[in-house]
Design a protein around this nucleic acid. Structure first.
Length: 805
RNA sequence: GCCUGUGUGGUGGAAUUGGUAGACGCGUUGGACUCAAAAUCCAAUGGUAGCAAUAUCGUGUCGGUUCGAGUCCGACCACAGGCACCA
């Protein structure tokens, strides 16, 4: 048992006063930027899950420093957002006061874990010095035509009285409070993210994200390539449809249009069954797009009577239906329906008694639709019932029909994206105020950049208004202002930004956090380059990562950042689950507080355990016994110092293992395999314990290998036994390539692939010798005697497999 | 429904990417030390049979490829996450 409390405090103090972890901009050392998602400083304090990722990145940071890099490992606070606001509403304190307290707690918890953050770069997204630049960047979006105000149908949470982004309303319920989301029209600030769909896809090639993470991005963007076709309406008018399956155009038996789209409004005067249609529209508007697009739902819809569409390829008159599965804001808000070759259309046709016309051979359309996934893979499928295109293969028909329609001037090849523009307004208090002013004469006018930051006022009420306006709307002193353009009376925008805003560029600010001339200097950003490792939760992979990439790409395009992608590798850690294997939560009573663990076992033990707990990228359940095992390991490391003899050579018995372990730990830390790195150190410890004496070099080496993971105890022992420089000022370990191989190896002998014997032989044994030796083993003879040896396979320095008949 | 993962002892997990399955840790059992306990140390520990040597079965299931499969291929099952009438 060592006095971890005293030791840990001592070294934390030393690191703080000596500023060894301070990163220098423009240093001659090669830069290395390690980033971990900055936390939202919640009231409940640091979670053991935070510890996992900070400890992991800390280990890399410490090793990289020893390897001679100028490491930037910063920490800050993502402190805008609704939990602080909700807390403020409940407890009648200003969110900024609550946030200040929470940050204090988080910071002291982090410091008690000895993370090597460069605290000189700390900031919070709620600091006016920071959000000034978030506002400034918004103005750049605006000035470049990328921000606009639009009346859009938005997800409205009646409980929180806020508009939610499409992403925040997943599942048809408010992400924050769980209430059902309804659809409501509201004027919102929007960012033209859809302009970047193609660039965001292409940019993935310039990153080193894992495939599953790239796929997450690709799925969000949701590109589909197809054809937009103009459709004439009988007796005047027309509309467009978008399809990815133009080859089925002769199979159209009806069209389906969005109940919430513009087209139905235009058609209304001609509609015969107005009551029915209106009722259906009203019904649809109650539903979120999530509800509308849910599978296993009745194929609801009504025919729009009195209006017919003309199939452009054969002049047939076709009925038009309203269907809520067609969304007004995706594609053109209208689709062609081909029941023979689309299962959804097929079921719709059955429900509404519509024709089914087969146009591609190979399926059984009496039972179900023969869909593109199937016919595209069937080389025998050809078109039928398609006039001059009948007999063509599907891929040829696709091209031929498209060309024919293009020639007629009624079709265009287009790409559609699921990803929509980013709804950037929130009717909240605790966010960055949007620096826009509405003038009676001039309309929307951006604030003068030199007037930023636009500060949040100090008030006592944070409740949103009942009509959904931000609490800021009630503060008339703040709202009333003058127009920057004409000087006339004007009002400020009262919406604030979403909390994704501040986190979309914080990694740039860390490169130059105290700059009051720019959000970060080009020199600083060029020096640091891309973030080498970005760690965070899997839950942020789709949204946060996409927003951040979009933000950076925009800044790049207006010449303000040096790279189009600023993040090279993204790593996501698995969750730490409760001891029962379930997600930790207060309600389940399975929350582990890191403070308690540090107090009882020390932060080195906690760090070591969380690194040893399992595969870093997978979830793992908390285990007190596992933690105790790691504490025991550190105690043994401590006691190992009792049998030191002075020597700057490795003990002969462990020289090979030493070199092997240095190699393994170095490689494992570089590839986030912390659990096997620790396991290798444990194996080394087991061997060293067997010796009567170990050399000071042995000891220093094992301590240094462990230092990135358990920095306090290793620094202490290194100092106590005067083994050398402090690790935080040392260079990393080298291994000798010539001393990685043992003089003997265990040769495995198989007969027909089954292990029948093992024998230790010299590493210099040749393949022929291995063969001969194999056949001398008694048990091997038992299986080969009297049989014909057909083949002998030799894997050098590993095994011999004898194949007998 | 689609996409992406995952599936290995009592348990957390290893396995050099096709070459000894179960490293390392936990737990359990036995032993040493102790008046006793804790701590520590030593030994054993996938199932079955056997005193043992050893044999046999064994990485979700069923097949296949291979001298050899946890790893590759095909089909399926279960769980987790994501997306979704996206035309």
């Amino acid at each position: 048992m060592y006095n971890f409390e005293k030791i840990e405090k001592k070294w934390q103090k030393y690191w703080e006063t000596s500023q060894v972890f301070k990163a220098e901009n423009g240093s001659e050392k090669p830069p290395y930027y390690i980033l971990v998602e900055f936390p939202y400083p919640s009231g409940s304090g640091l979670h053991v899950g935070h510890v996992r990722s900070y400890a992991a990145q800390d280990a890399i940071a410490r090793m990289k420093r020893m390897q001679g890099y100028n490491v930037l490992y910063p920490m800050g606070w993502d402190a805008f957002g609704s939990p602080a606001e909700q807390y403020a509403i409940k407890n009648h304190i200003h969110p900024k006061d609550a946030v200040r307290e929470n940050i204090k707690t988080f910071k002291s918890q982090m410091q008690s874990l000895g993370f090597s953050f460069d605290w000189s770069r700390e900031f919070s997204t709620t600091d006016p010095e920071y959000y000034k630049w978030t506002q400034w960047q918004f103005l750049q979006f605006y000035k470049n035509g990328m921000a606009y105000k639009d009346k859009v149908k938005v997800n409205w949470c009646p409980n929180c009285k806020v508009v939610l982004s499409n992403e925040d309303a997943a599942g048809g319920v408010c992400e924050r409070c769980g209430s059902p989301v309804i659809q409501k029209e509201k004027s919102q600030w929007m960012l033209r993210m859809s302009n970047y769909a193609e660039d965001l896809l292409k940019g993935l090639d310039d990153t080193n994200f894992a495939d599953k993470i790239k796929l997450g991005q690709i799925n969000w963007i949701g590109k589909s390539t197809g054809v937009e076709v103009d459709i004439d309406i009988k007796d005047g008018g027309k509309f467009s449809i978008f399809t990815t399956c133009i080859e089925t155009i002769y199979g159209i038996t009806f069209f389906c249009i969005a109940p919430d789209g513009k087209l139905i409004k235009e058609l209304m005067p001609r509609v015969q069954n107005k009551d029915e249609v209106n009722a259906y529209i009203e019904e649809t508007l109650k539903k979120s797009s999530m509800d509308r697009t849910e599978l296993n739902k009745g194929k609801s819809g009504v025919e729009v009577k009195g209006v017919k569409a003309i199939n452009p390829v054969n002049g047939k008159e076709v009925p038009i239906f309203l269907g809520d599965f067609v969304l007004g804001d995706y594609g053109t808000g209208a689709v062609m329906a081909v029941p023979a070759h689309d299962q959804r259309d097929f079921e719709y046709a059955q429900a509404h008694n519509l024709d089914v016309i087969e146009v591609i051979t190979g399926g059984n359309i009496k039972e179900k639709a023969y869909e593109k996934y199937d016919y595209l893979e069937n080389p025998d499928s050809v078109l039928i019932n398609s006039c001059e295109f009948s007999g063509l293969k599907v891929s040829d028909a696709k091209e031929a029909i498209t060309k024919m329609l293009e020639k007629k001037g009624i079709a265009r090849r287009v790409n559609n994206y699921k990803m929509r523009d980013w709804i950037f307004s929130r009717q909240r208090f605790w966010g960055e105020p949007i620096p826009m002013i509405k003038c009676e004469k001039c309309g929307w006018v951006p604030m003068n950049e030199e007037d930023l930051p636009l500060l949040l006022p100090d008030v006592t009420e944070y409740e949103p208004t009942d009509n959904g306006e931000s609490p800021l709307a009630k503060i008339t002193d703040w709202v009333n202002t003058t127009c920057p353009k004409c000087g006339g009376p004007a009002k400020r925008e009262t919406d604030t930004m979403p909390n994704w805003a501040g986190s979309s560029w914080y990694f740039l600010r860390f490169m130059d956090p105290h700059n009051d001339k720019e959000f970060a200097s080009m020199d600083a950003m060029k020096y640091w380059g891309k973030v080498n490792w970005y760690n965070g939760g899997m839950e942020h992979v789709a949204r946060h990562l996409l927003y951040a990439r979009f933000w950076v790409q925009f800044l790049y395009n207006i010449g303000l950042v040096p790279n189009k992608e600023m993040i090279w590798t993204r790593v996501s850690h698995g969750m730490i689950l409760g001891p029962n294997g379930e997600k930790m939560s207060k309600s389940k009573g399975n929350v582990v507080n890191p403070d308690d663990i540090i107090k009882e076992f020390g932060s080195d033990a906690l760090r070591t355990y969380e690194m040893f707990i399992g595969d870093y990228e997978k979830d793992a359940a908390w285990s007190l016994n596992g933690l105790k095992g790691c504490k025991k390991f550190l105690d043994r490391i401590y006691r190992l110092g009792e049998k030191l003899i002075k020597s700057d050579e490795y003990s002969k018995e462990t020289e090979i293992l030493m070199n092997q372990t240095i190699k393994k730990v170095t490689l494992d830390l570089d590839s986030i395999k912390y659990n096997t790195a620790i396991s290798a150190i444990m194996i080394l410890l087991n061997e060293l314990e067997k010796l009567d004496n170990i050399t000071t070099k042995d000891y220093r080496t094992i301590l240094q290998l462990l230092n990135p993971i358990a920095p306090h105890i290793t620094e202490e022992l290194n100092e106590m036994y005067e083994l050398g420089d402090k690790f935080c000022n040392s260079t990393w370990l080298e291994y000798d390539e010539n001393k990685l191989e043992n003089i003997t190896f265990t040769m495995v002998v198989q007969v027909n692939g089954k292990v029948r014997g093992k024998i230790d032989v010299s590493s210099s044994t040749t393949e022929d010798e291995m063969k001969k030796l194999a056949l001398t083993i008694e048990n091997v003879k038992n299986f080969t005697n009297g049989k014909e040896i057909a083949k002998v396979i030799v894997i050098p320095k590993k095994l011999v497999n004898i194949v007998v008949k």
